[in-house]
Amino acid sequence: MLKLRALRFSYGEEDYQFDLSAGSHSTSAIMGKSGSGKSTLLNLIAGFLKPSGGDIQWLGESILSLPAEKRPITTLFQQHNLFPHLTLHQNLALGINPSLKLSKEQHQQLLQSLDAVGMAGMEYQSAHTLSGGEQQRVALARCLLRKKPILLMDEPFSALDEATRESMQVLTRDTIENNKLCAIIVTHSQNDAIALEASTYSLVNGRLSSHT
């Protein structure tokens, strides 16, 4: 269970307080207009921002003091998920070991993850040659390789065209299902929430409220 307890953040005029409980294998969609603080919420959970109060717990233990890379969390950003000048292999390997040294086993896992997102055999292509949809697939593959139980997604489908978005939504839903992840997506689109079969929350005036 991922729990946010009175997680507070203030910056100038902005003031947020988040309370949320998400099951260890569940999908939650946070809906809100742009500027409502959706990204702030994800940045707090991921450890990119420091909250001014409250707590974040995973399986009953606080993860607040952990730096971003040590948290049980992996993130799929809206774009710029891959380093364009590196190959897919390098981009994926960075998810396992930042110095790119992989064991044979890890190399196998890397190839499997690429296969799982339908991009088998493309590991030595340079990332900048991929389309936006393909880049998101590879990024999702890296999220899997990181073997983190929590998957955060920040508008992961908004930069994609309609046809690509649909197939990416299906792939993401299946991935969450097969790996039994705790997934949290922030989006402005109702369609994303429906496609991922997520429980929805809305973020208004700096507070979360359950939709159903």
Binding site: N43, A46, F48, A68, E69, I73, T74, T75, F77, L94
Partner: peptide, 9 residues
Amino acid sequence: RLIQSLGIH
């Protein structure tokens, strides 16, 4: 943010 979350330093 990506660099941070992957712990590349």
